[in-house]
Design a protein around this nucleic acid. Structure first.
Length: 582
DNA sequence: GCGTTACAAA
């Protein structure tokens, strides 16, 4: 009964407590297996403290008790505690099995300790444990989550191939690994198909992973097909995690209406369901609805978590609601006992920064209870760029650079701040520095799906078969745009770092060939009058394109949605849904 | 042993 309770989604703290008391009164706690189940039950529902208490008070601990406690620490992001327990287990001469190994791997993963994990991997190869599916999934999880240079999934493939009898969890771990890597989502889908090919029926976990991968595929329509597949499978229609993944997928694929419709018809909802919908509204620039849903959540006694507050605080930041943001920040600590983490502080910096209160934003960095990381400096730098505070921008960029010397963002952002202030030489100097240090910016590209075929564009792209028509359309469009009052903003023109000076006319021409403009133009040419189009870009949309597409939406009389790396921009009759906050 | 949700930055 207790094991069953551990698997149940709806069980709350009081019910576990009751079961626990029942076991004690009935004398069942003398059975180690019963107490082990209670321990796991507490841990799975998020009550680490109680789980630990059960473990400490147990008389006859067996190997399973130790393993369960190690897992509990790992799942609550207490990797060090897990490793301490493992060492104790060894020193006591207890038998270590595959389950122990897999649990210890979870600890390395949550500590992001790739070196320690690798050493452990080597030891398991010596003992031959690495051919076990349980251990294998721990290893794959480790490499997919901890490797920083993108080589992680290569290592995962090797681990996978060593395992003679992969089970469904191992397949799911591979799909999950691919899906967490933005650029490998196509591989996640491939893996999902392959697993069915060798005879596995995907379970709820497989669907959750593959659906989340669908948000990052080139074609936004695949998600719908996978949804249909899930409905035909034997996954229950009320499976919360699958439905949550679908809500997130629809909203990330630009289909907020379908996301909301699904959300409304869900028979069961939890914190994550609300988080997904709240984030969906925020990404589409409907922050008011995000905050409304959050208030509703509080009324309905659905407990918010740290992620809820990240979304809500950023929604406040985007709408300039400084006071409300502060109110929610305090509520998080006082009412819900959630300690603010780097993400929350970065939202607060953003909240003040966007509103032009740079002093307050800087004060947050100075008074934070831990050392600020790159995300806090990035938020401050973003605010400085927006409000043209060069001096503070230099400081923030330097701090950011110290922490992430190979990240292109601080260079680009500071360079843009200089350029906006008219300090062109400083901007150019920074670009040179970037080249000298071998820091590369990801090339921007945009794509659009037309009749289930994806068309990809990069800046200055001439490879598309219809490029002549596209250029012609854009030239004509430019004429009409200028008539309507559009002024090209050449600060956004791509300047190659080896060019000292570029003619204005040439800059204007380059602006016209930005990937997002090409994709929009192609979309307009290839679809019927009045049909809305959706363009996706891998980076953030450029400022000139943002302005230009407003004009295009009016002139062409179309609804044009651009999903950039960050959010949605829905252009309609000369306005963007982001209200220029981006 | 695997899973859903978020921020800032290109």
């Amino acid at each position: 009964m207790i094991t069953a309770a551990a698997c149940c989604n709806d069980i709350d703290f009081n019910l576990i407590k009751q079961l626990h008391c029942f076991a004690i009164f009935g004398g069942f706690d003398a059975y180690t297996s019963v107490t082990n189940a209670i321990l796991t039950c507490y841990s799975r529902k998020g009550f680490l403290h109680e789980a630990r208490q059960v473990f400490c008070e147990m008389d006859g601990r067996d190997e399973v008790s130790w393993n369960s406690m190690i897992v509990a620490f790992g799942q609550h992001r207490e990797g060090l505690e897990a490793l301490v327990l493992f060492k104790e287990m060894i020193s006591m001469g207890l038998r270590v099995d595959m389950f122990t190994m897999a649990s210890v791997l979870t600890a390395f993963t949550c500590l992001k300790d790739l070196v320690g994990g690798k050493q452990f991997h080597a030891m398991m190869i010596k003992k031959g444990f690495h051919r076990n599916s349980h251990v294998g999934s721990g290893l794959i999880d480790l490499y997919s989550k901890c490797a920083t240079n993108g080589s992680g999934m290569l290592e995962c493939r090797k681990v996978f191939e060593e395992i003679p009898a992969p089970d469904i969890v191992l397949w799911n771990t591979m799909i999950s690994g691919f899906s967490q890597n933005e650029d490998l989502c196509e591989d996640a889908l491939c893996c999902f198909r392959k697993m069915q090919h060798v005879g596995f029926r995907p379970d709820d976990c497989s669907f959750v992973c593959v659906i989340s991968a669908c948000s990052n595929l080139l074609s936004p329509s695949v998600g719908k097909q996978v949804h249909a597949l899930a409905m035909k499978s034997d996954i229950p229609y009320n499976c919360v995690s699958v439905n949550n993944a679908l809500v997130a997928m629809y909203s990330k694929c630009g289909n907020l209406q379908d996301a909301r419709r699904l959300f409304d018809t869900m028979p069961e909802r939890n914190t994550v369901s609300l988080n997904s919908m709240i984030a969906g509204y925020a990404q589409h620039g409907i922050e008011v609805e995000s905050i409304h849903l959050f208030e509703l959540m509080l009324q309905k006694d659905i407990t918010p978590n740290r992620i809820t507050f990240v979304s809500v605080l950023s929604a406040c930041a985007h709408t300039g609601k400084v006071e409300e943001g502060q109110k929610y920040f305090n509520m998080m600590k006082v009412k819900f006992g959630i300690e603010p983490e780097a993400e929350h502080f970065s939202c607060m910096i953003d909240l003040f920064g966007r509103a032009g209160k740079l002093k307050e934003a800087e004060r947050i960095i100075q008074t934070m209870p831990f050392n600020p990381g790159s995300i806090e400096w990035a938020a401050l730098l973003g605010a400085c760029r927006k409000h043209g505070n060069v001096e503070l921008a230099v400081k923030a960029a330097n701090k950011f650079l110290e922490l992430e010397p190979y990240n292109a963002s601080p260079y680009v952002m500071l360079s843009n701040t200089y350029a906006s202030a008219g300090r062109w030489e400083d901007a150019a100097k920074l670009k040179r520095l970037m080249r000298e240090r071998g820091v590369k910016k990801k090339p921007g590209c945009s794509w659009i799906e037309i009749d289930r075929k994806v068309h990809v564009f990069v800046a200055e792209d001439t490879s598309h078969p219809m490029i002549k028509e596209i250029h012609e359309y854009m030239r004509e469009m430019l004429r009409k745009m200028k008539e309507a009052g559009y002024v090209p903003d050449i600060r956004w023109a791509l300047v190659k770092d080896d060019e000292e000076a570029t003619e204005e006319e040439e800059k204007e021409r380059r602006l016209l060939h930005h990937s997002e403009k090409l994709a929009v133009a192609f979309g307009l040419i290839s679809t019927e009058e009045g049909v809305p189009i959706l363009v996706v870009k891998n980076l953030r949309i450029c400022g000139d394109c943002h302005n230009a597409i407003k004009f295009i939406s009016t002139i062409a009389g179309r609804e044009i949605t651009v999903r950039d790396a960050h959010r949605f921009h829905c252009f309609k009759e000369g306005q963007c849904s982001c209200r220029d906050y981006w």
